[in-house]
Amino acid sequence: MVKVKGLFEKAYLFVILAILYAPILLIIVYSFSNSSNFRFDEGFTFEAYISIFNSEKSPALWDAVGNTFLIAAVSSVIATVVGSFAAIGIFAMGRKARRVLENVNQFPIINSEIVMAVSLMIFFVTFAFPEGYLRLIIAHIAFCTPYVVLSVLPKLESMDPNVYEAALDLGANPFKALVKVLFPMITPGIVSGFVLAFTLSMDDFIITQINKGASTGINTLSTYIYSDARVQGLEPFWYAIFSIIFVVILALVLTLNLVRINRRKQQEKEGAI
């Protein structure tokens, strides 16, 4: 009885997993067919991968890839610096001020992306911000920084407040205590905040699409996919690109998480001893 139930549960888990990954796997398999109709008419070929580099769309595509990384790099670095300092400042505040700021910080996270996107657009248009990178980078900083604050704050909270005081006690002035003790201790939070900001920025579609401005022709990867594939469907080279993205991202996220889980297990083990 119990065995049957266990089997049933495992089957259920497997079916859902299969459905989740079926599209991904199909895309990867047919990326080697150089076709858009899920048939191996030309047999197994790398043609689709080659066309990433030499089709007429390649320049626009690579331009979009470049933009994606440029915007992600600039906005996540700024978001990390501003957000980390903000977290230290918020943490040092009184209870009331802190609650207000934490709520404001929470807002871009809970808010619907479309509302955030159009509100920024109205703002940019009204105050005549130049179209292009400036708008996009500001918008990306605006939605990434709260996540940095959120990943740094818990590190500050879990820190023994006496540790900072111990540095002062041992003769470090407040600035040295900050650099030599506080920052090293919250570094894990800062790093994960940065990684989060970077991926969020790279992944964004809605806010970028609405704020990129029609006239500039700036595209990130996601807005370029949207404009290109919305109308005529996916050309074979998209299959290749998607496959690369799937494999890279899934491998990256999986290893990052497994490493984290392993480390936690190890810590638990050490803690037990």
Partner: peptide, 17 residues
């Protein structure tokens, strides 16, 4: 895990299928 792949890409993939 699939959540980390851009939703447009996943949507277009399902659409193609």
């Amino acid at each position: 895990l699939p959540m980390w792949v851009n939703f447009l890409i996943r949507t277009l993939a399902t659409k193609a299928i």
